[in-house]
């Protein structure tokens, strides 16, 4: 895989987790504790999505390279 593509994929993985932190802060600070379940669910969802993105990025950036070599 080209170095640029690797860097972009890694950037995507980092951005996904930065997005989790940003989403959690925005949700918590803007919604208060009016409905804890409604706040909790989107935070769970973004964590799971970021984790899945991280797994895909790891597979593409590292494991595929090992297979090709």
């Amino acid at each position: 895989m080209r170095r640029v593509n690797r860097a972009l994929l890694l950037l995507l993985g980092v951005a996904a987790w930065a997005g989790v932190a940003l989403t959690a802060v925005l949700i918590t600070f803007n919604m208060g504790d009016k409905n804890q379940v409604l706040m909790f669910l989107p935070i769970v969802a973004v964590v799971v999505v970021a984790w899945a993105i991280g797994e895909v990025v790891t597979e593409l950036v590292f494991n595929r390279d090992q297979g090709e070599s």
């Binding site: 987790w17 989790v20 932190a21 959690a24 964590v47």
Partner: peptide, 8 residues
């Protein structure tokens, strides 16, 4: 809170 949520 942030560290626990992002799992770092």
């Amino acid at each position: 809170g942030i560290a626990l949520i992002v799992g770092a």
